[in-house]
Simulated scan of single mutants.
Amino acid sequence: MMASCENSSTVHKDGSVMSSTLLFTTGLIGNTIALVILGKHKRDSRRRVSAFYILVTGLVLTDLFGKCLISPVVFVSYASNLTLKALGANNHLCDYFSFSMSFFGLASMFILFAMALECWLSISHPFFYQEHFTKRRVIVIFPVVYIFCLLFCSMPLMGLGSNKQYCPGTWCFINMTMVEQTPSFSVLYATLMAILIASVLLCNSSVAINLTKMYRKQRQRSNSSLSVRDGTRRFAHSEEVDHLILLVLMSAIFLICSLPLTIRAYIGAFAPDNRDEEDLIALKFASVNSIVDPWVFIIFRTSVFRKLASKCCKDSSSTLHL
């Protein structure tokens, strides 16, 4: 069992700068390639860029900025063999790292929710969507999300919670242990994340159900096998289906990466076990999300994957009809 590093001044011997370097490099390359693909899509698109792609671009940029603002602190800590508390006087560096981790994690989740909501409105309420979900209003989403996350994640800095240094001493995050018999700020953070995750899953489920109903109605209205095949082809290549597949993949990754942290936050608040190594694993899962997201988008944009997804949609739709 790894000893607690909460008050240590030197990096724990089990720490590895290679793993941090690999994660940073992978995230940096992935986000950069994703931005190139998005830029190419904007140039090649004959129509104006959709709201969904504006939100995807914002998500990629948020993940990229998060990596660039957080990872260098880790490298400095390893290079000097000093923990974040030892490097920054009065815990300032530790507070910065904790705030950045929580801020970018929550902001990414809000943007992912906005993507799911946009997809749901475009399918379930198309008239409302066309009238109210304009490009200008989509862009306004970002400052609103960032301001809210800034205020919310600043609560520990204002005395409404506390931050903790985790092993090997190159990580800091919200203290997930109950303090003075009062549930910690981590419960509020975890609860908000859980609500957003549930909302994303609910929107995605609703979109999937509505698309299935639309396809069945299309099949029923078809008068010939040729028109059925044409309808299936249109359905399989529709923009809504593409968006849904990408959303489902990103939502699944975010669920896998965020759930451990949510569980550890509730355990630390209501049944503390002081298992720092499990908290650290949960934190690593949370940090991996910003690395995996752009690669999911990159793979999704490849022709091979899109052909495979299209074939799966056709097969599953035919099965449902039978």
Rank of each mutant, 00 (worst) to 15 (best):
M1H: 04
M2F: 09
S4G: 07
S19T: 10
F24N: 10
G27H: 06
G30V: 07
I33P: 10
L35T: 09
H41R: 13
K42A: 05
R48E: 14
S50P: 09
Y53E: 12
Y53V: 00
I54F: 12
L55Y: 14
T57L: 04
T62N: 08
C68F: 05
L69G: 02
P72D: 01
F75R: 00
S80C: 08
S80G: 01
S80K: 13
S80F: 15
N81L: 01
L82H: 12
T83K: 03
L84F: 08
L84Y: 06
K85P: 00
K85I: 01
A86I: 07
L87V: 05
L87Q: 05
G88E: 00
N90G: 01
D95P: 08
Y96H: 03
S98H: 10
S98N: 05
F99H: 13
F99Y: 14
F103N: 04
L106W: 12
M109K: 02
M109V: 08
L112F: 06
L112K: 06
L112D: 06
M115N: 08
A116E: 05
C119L: 13
S124R: 11
P126I: 03
Q130R: 14
E131T: 10
E131I: 08
F133V: 11
T134M: 07
R137P: 13
I139M: 14
I139G: 01
F142Q: 10
P143N: 09
Y146R: 03
I147R: 02
F148Y: 08
C149V: 04
L150R: 07
L151N: 05
M155K: 13
M158I: 08
G159V: 05
L160Y: 15
G161T: 04
N163A: 00
T170V: 13
C172D: 00
F173I: 00
M176H: 05
P183V: 01
S184V: 06
T191W: 14
L192Y: 11
I195R: 10
L196F: 15
I197Q: 14
A198M: 11
C203R: 10
C203P: 07
C203H: 09
N204E: 13
S206F: 03
V207G: 05
A208K: 13
I209L: 11
T212L: 09
M214W: 04
Y215S: 06
K217C: 08
Q218G: 14
Q220S: 03
S222G: 07
S222I: 02
S225V: 12
T232N: 09
R234W: 04
H237Q: 03
D242I: 01
H243I: 02
L244F: 01
L247W: 01
V248S: 09
L249N: 01
F254Q: 14
F254N: 15
I256S: 02
I256M: 04
C257P: 12
T262M: 15
A271L: 10
R275S: 15
R275Q: 15
D276I: 09
D276L: 11
D276T: 12
E277M: 12
E278A: 13
I281Y: 15
A282W: 14
F285G: 03
S287I: 15
V288A: 15
V288E: 14
N289P: 07
S290K: 04
I291G: 10
V292C: 04
P294T: 02
W295A: 07
F297S: 02
F300E: 02
R301K: 12
T302D: 01
S303E: 09
S303P: 06
V304L: 10
F305T: 05
F305E: 02
R306E: 04
K307M: 11
A309Y: 13
S310K: 07
L320M: 07
L320F: 12
L322P: 11
